[in-house]
Nucleic acid binder design. Structure first.
Lengths: 201, 201
DNA sequence: CAATATACTGTATATAATTACAGTAATTAT
DNA sequence: ATAATTACTGTAATTATATACAGTATATTG
């Protein structure tokens, strides 16, 4: 899917907000009015270009027949087992995607991670739960983080983080703290866990 | 808001599913075609009636200008503290509402209940969590239910249910089973817990 | 350097769609 | 019992909308 030009993106956003506001797409005239075009054909040609790039579909003969091809942008990926090596969000790790629901949970969630194991049960994170992960939320001591240690992805509480010592705590009395020297072992904090979904009880 | 007739409801559903399918409302002709009307005016008059009853708004002059007046049906109530006495879904118990997001969690959820106390921590249900409750899902032994005992609402696991003995188990070793004789005490199973949301970790 | 893409104006037209008017008939409310 | 509501057919006119065709101008790509 090719990139849109600035103007084309403007028009796509206009379409989206029109739908959000009123519940149906704009006409060529609506678009022209909004953006100051003096000819409906300006809108028409932009629509054709946007369609050609795969972002919308124009239904011929139907008024307001603009169908959004929902991009992956509106979908939040659910990550199942993370294959060793590659990045978490690699195609092969995506179990499914779920539509981004504006207000239900924080809009900061970049992906959901399906929990494996029982290392976090003491704070109510169970196997098969989906954890909402934000890549941008700042990870401070005390927060639950998604960490990658030597290519293995894990969810733990961040207890200490300094130049040569990082402590990750499983929230389960059965397990011991994980102490890592990031200068010796490969360590990356992938994000913070900010929400939780359990699809069945 | 008055009730719709059977036919009017049929038309409203048609509008909704048209929007869901294509992203924009149907025309009078679309409706007529779908329901076998031979005149677009049949659809027109139904629309006017549905508008009069407050379910939609018709924007004059705009093609496909049917705006759904989102009824409470599209919002799932979040129930905070349940006042003793009244029904769970009473207005005063509704903390907020969140938009029903089709696929995120089961569409069977009738309301969310905010968990108070620690009686279910052993199965990962913590204070302040939101539990998705279905009124219709069948409550069988072993399922987590919302029960009301003598006007107090509680979430527990249903262990046994017979004519004169109902056992409800808190999932926390600290607490004992609750044994109720429904013929002596007032008991109602309000619904089953089928999902869980945690808005912050 | 030619071809293609971008970004429009301007005009015109076929058709899509709303919407008014004139009826019929059965059911429901007052 | 009478008015209002429901549930349509049928026709027609106005307006809304898509869309084709003919241009202009600039930027980008092969």
């Amino acid at each position: 899917m090719k990139n849109l030009t600035k103007r084309q993106e403007e028009i796509l956003n206009l379409i989206k907000s029109h739908i959000l506001d009123l519940g149906f797409p704009p006409t060529r005239a609506d678009i022209s009015r909004s953006l100051g075009f003096k000819s409906p054909n300006a809108a028409e040609q932009h629509l054709r270009a946007i369609e050609k790039k795969g972002f919308i579909k124009i239904l011929s003969g139907a008024s307001r027949g603009i169908v959004l091809n929902d991009s992956e942008n509106d979908q939040i990926p659910v990550i199942g087992l993370v294959a060793a090596g590659g990045p978490i969000l690699a195609e092969e790790n995506i179990e499914k995607t779920i539509p981004r629901s504006n207000n239900l949970l924080s809009s900061d969630i970049d992906y959901y991670l399906r929990v494996k194991g029982d290392s976090m049960v003491d704070i109510g994170i169970f196997e098969e739960d989906l954890i909402g992960v934000s890549k941008s939320a700042n990870t401070k001591v005390g927060s639950v983080v998604v960490a990658r240690i030597n290519n293995e992805v894990t969810v733990k509480t961040l207890i200490e983080m300094s130049q040569n010592k990082v402590v990750l705590r499983p929230e389960n009395r059965k397990y011991d703290d994980i102490i890592v020297n990031p200068q010796v072992e490969e360590l990356a904090i992938e994000g913070s866990c900010i929400a939780l979904l359990r699809e069945s009880i």
